[in-house]
Design a protein around this nucleic acid. Structure first.
Lengths: 327, 327
DNA sequence: CGCCCCGATGACAACGTTGTCTGGTTCCGG
DNA sequence: CCGGAACCAGACAACGTTGTCATCGGGGCG
């Protein structure tokens, strides 16, 4: 900036005035300054500006499990979309479900003075965020609640959705239904299991411990457990899958098998309708999750200080046929 | 910081020493300072720190078409992964293929003093980046070259990959092969068309203008053009699709049709192997694109000032069966 | 002619840090 | 008992901006 000032023969304050479109600069002076800016390729330093003005950094931090997972990337995109209307940029980070990594990212973002955080929490301890929140950092949790912090949270109706899946299968006459889910320490996994159990109760299906399989996260793992579920004296005739990754693993494991169990998966995924049979799913909207979270966050930034809210977005069972296939 | 200093009864410089783990602070003093930091929830302001130290901001800017598109989100994840090894964070932005939006994002990132930019360029004019690059901002273009700027670029072998697709189809006996691609002003689209033409020439397939369809980007659009390609006196018996979105649209348009043309798609996609028939694709690695770009960028940051490089990553034809289906 | 006001510009401090330099103890060896 | 090293701690300036206030002409008005 002082280079520009020297070249234009003015003080740096005048340059500042020009780059900020402040009134009261002689047109001819402004002209000279602009020419100097152009010639030197000057671009004002936003960090310094924000520091001096005490204004926001105009950034948002988004921490999720994996930026590369389509579900989260759609969520991120929705956040970005809302942020854009507010002239803010988005910093993203993947925690890989590692609480330590999440914490590291969150504190790093706080040190960068992001205006707010949107977090898909990993693990159950988020007390480390309390001081930040007390210091005025708005935090919204998405997809799962934080273990030990009360804050705005946006969830989907995991219980209702899974119960619907069971109901759908029961309506097709299935009585032996298996559930495959993520590790039970992940909120959505345990909620969906709960929904599964409730669904069984409501639909008059006998819930049996040995048809519940939590935690496999490789194709081989899913395949092995599936073998167990479909073997034995009383094999399962239908399966509820707890998330899209497990569903995909399962499809691979089932591929080419002559007799396939009926299947309903939690989370929709691209091409589910083009498979044979088309896969029925419990659908919900990652984009809406992101939008809701971002909107909650911006409300806080605009001064909303009402008690923390918990938004639960509905799910929708999309019957595509896989729920009707009989063994 | 001065609050902490006051509470601990020291000068702010001592606080600075403590938060920076500098040697030469009496343990008891450090203890007091740490306690004060804890009590006040102090977190040092990274922007101010970077400003003062003149060090990098520790951020990277990534601009791509759509953060929510799985292809780009995998790329982003790879960039993040490399950035992480260097202790840097990633700012992302979606251009939606709008050059104006891209420019806005890029300049905003520059004003924030990101350490470098990774850009999937939209449009053909990127001269606006020249001053920034001259001022020392390293820029790497991914997936497409910039129209009018020479800089590091990471591409995939669009021409070779598409030619392989044609070769594969020709080997199955196809002589009437259609090509569906993105709008021709998108680099990858025109390159792949070129590859298609070259493939035809090399494989002895007659290239015919009326079997080339560029630009449809809705399912209905693809369906309508497909109708044309498959109708008429000399219908196409095989189709090459120029990217994963078009492939998916095409699959929907073809779904349930009794006689399907043979199909090879550029870009692999999840579940392609589970469709019926499994879809043959020209596979390439978004993750590797991202990694290569990030590594080029970091090399520049470490002072590599060799002439701009152009890296072309190979593609691999994965024959899954859809190329062999005969009408 | 003198006054005041206004338009244009600049000097200076401050944002929250950290690098440099200096001042003050303490403790050791001579 | 003194010189000097070693150790701690603080004062001050600076990073690149912008907010506040002061300065300086010139022009309109009484």
């Amino acid at each position: 900036m002082s280079d520009v000032a020297r070249l234009a023969g003015v003080s740096i304050k005048t340059v500042s005035r020009v780059v900020n479109d402040e009134a009261g600069v002689h047109p001819a002076t402004a002209e000279r300054v602009l020419a100097a800016i152009e010639r030197l390729g000057f671009r004002r330093n936003l960090s310094a500006r924000n520091l001096r003005r005490g204004s926001s950094t105009g950034t948002l931090g988004v921490i999720l499990e994996d930026v590369g997972n389509p579900f989260y990337s759609v969520l991120t995109r929705a956040v970005e979309e809302v942020a854009r209307t507010q002239g803010r940029q988005v910093l993203t980070g993947s925690s890989d479900e590692d609480p330590g990594r999440e914490r590291e990212l969150a504190l790093e973002f706080c040190a960068r003075r992001v205006d707010g955080l949107i977090v898909v929490p990993a693990g159950m301890q988020h007390g480390y965020l309390v001081p930040e929140m007390q210091a005025g950092m708005p935090v919204v949790f998405v997809d799962r609640p934080a273990g030990d912090v009360v804050a705005d949270t946006v969830l989907v109706d995991n219980i209702g959705g899974t119960a619907d899946a069971v109901k759908h299968l029961a309506a097709q006459g299935h009585q032996r239904i298996a559930f495959f889910g993520d590790a039970p320490d992940i909120f959505t996994a345990s909620e969906r299991l709960r929904g599964f159990r409730e669904g069984c109760a409501r639909s008059g299906v006998r819930y049996s411990e040995e048809l519940v399989f939590m935690g496999p996260h490789t194709e081989a793992g899913v395949a092995a457990l599936l073998e167990r579920a479909l073997g034995g004296p009383e094999p399962a005739t239908a399966v509820v899958s707890g998330n899209n990754r497990i569903t995909v693993h399962m499809l691979r494991a089932l591929y080419g098998r002559p007799a396939r169990p009926a299947l309903v998966g939690f989370d929709d995924f691209e091409l589910a309708d083009l498979l044979n049979p088309p896969i029925s799913v419990v659908q919900h909207d990652a984009s809406m999750l992101g939008r809701a979270a971002a909107e909650l966050l911006f409300a806080r930034l605009e001064g909303d200080s009402s008690p923390p809210r918990r938004v639960v977005l509905p799910t929708r069972l999309v019957a595509r046929g896989s729920g009707e296939v009989r063994p």
